[in-house]
């Protein structure tokens, strides 16, 4: 089995999809000759040709809008948006069309496509290269949202997303694109959409995280053990829409305490929805209010401030302490 980092696993997933399904088209800005600004599509145009891996004009609404027409007419477009913070020109296409094709046509047309976007901060990039507006899209019915935190899940979720009959927003944690390598099968496999993963079992408190924040949460869990002796369970949501209720609730029923961690601003972030879900399903299991550790409710700052804007292990530990000491 090969060792791959997240970006390599994504490239490999795209390669398998392009090889196995002639309907798959990879398109976006700089994805062809240049292999993408993060090299996620490196070598794919050379291997599959410029009809399958397409450099488009610089136009996010056009890329997503054209992908709608392609999907409706039988293709499986996999558009890349260069950064999640560049999605805003395409939001109208996503909200008004991508998410609604099946509904509006009452099943006459469908819109299977996978919108890939590197999300979150932490790479010292310019403004609007570090946003995490995933909650905007979790709020939009008709699309699914996934966010892997490791190379194995990245490839498996990507292939599951491309197979999905519904549109999927595929968020890539760019800060950890090359942070570590895992064993990744070279052949096709999928990771089921809608399934979270308990990556570290524990008995005292549940931490819910995804993408970049997963490893930071594991670090905070380690600190909690060392400093307080608390045994923290860490759950990688992997799919943000639809949420894996069973795993989320199962964990908090066991531990009785929980903290949700995300990079996005705290207010009306996905953490609020998870707190509401726990409130609906596990209120009587709780020994303390569910905590939230998020980005501050201020626009994502310039990069000299990004390390204290996004949660780090220290802030997550602080959140754990508040809930444990309630």
């Amino acid at each position: 089995m090969a060792k791959m980092n997240i970006i390599q696993a994504i490239t490999d997933g795209l390669r398998v999809a392009l090889r196995d399904d002639p309907r798959v088209i990879v398109l976006g800005e700089d994805v062809g000759v240049n292999g993408g600004v993060f090299r996620a599509t490196e070598g794919l145009q050379a291997e599959f040709g410029s009809d399958r891996v397409v450099d488009t004009p610089l136009a996010e609404a056009g890329i997503i809008g054209a992908s709608v027409g392609m999907a409706v007419n039988g293709m499986r477009p996999v558009p890349e948006l260069q950064f999640f913070g560049f999605i805003y020109p395409a939001v109208e296409q996503i909200v008004a069309h991508v998410a609604r094709v099946r509904m509006r046509s009452q099943g006459r047309f469908t819109c299977p496509m996978v919108i890939r976007a590197p999300y979150g901060g932490g790479i010292r990039a310019p403004e609007l290269h570090g946003d995490s507006p995933e909650a905007m899209f979790v709020h939009q019915p008709g699309i699914k949202v996934v966010c892997p935190s490791n190379p194995y899940d990245a490839k498996g979720l990507l292939l599951a997303a491309i197979d999905s009959p519904d549109p999927v927003l595929f968020l890539e944690p760019m800060r950890i694109y090359r942070a570590f390598r895992d064993e990744v099968p070279e052949e096709r496999y999928t990771v089921e959409i809608g399934k979270a993963n308990v990556v570290k079992e524990g008995t005292d408190i549940s931490l819910y995280a995804w993408g970049t924040m997963l490893r930071v949460s594991l670090e905070a869990a380690k600190m909690a053990k060392e400093q307080h002796g608390w045994d923290v369970e860490v759950v990688d949501l992997r799919t943000l829409s639809p949420l894996d209720r069973e795993t989320i609730i199962g964990s908090v029923q066991k531990t009785g305490r929980a903290v949700v961690v995300h990079e996005a601003p705290k207010t009306a972030g996905l953490g609020a929805e998870i707190v509401a879900l726990i409130n609906d399903e596990a209120l009587l299991s709780l020994e303390a209010p569910v905590g939230r550790v998020g980005g501050y409710d201020a626009p994502q700052p310039l990069f000299s401030l990004e390390d204290i804007y996004a949660p780090d292990a220290k802030r997550i530990l602080h959140g754990i302490e508040k809930v444990m000491n309630f």
Partner: peptide
């Protein structure tokens, strides 16, 4: 853009 995409397909 949908018309463009459908034509492309």
């Amino acid at each position: 853009p949908h018309a463009v995409g459908a034509a492309w397909a």
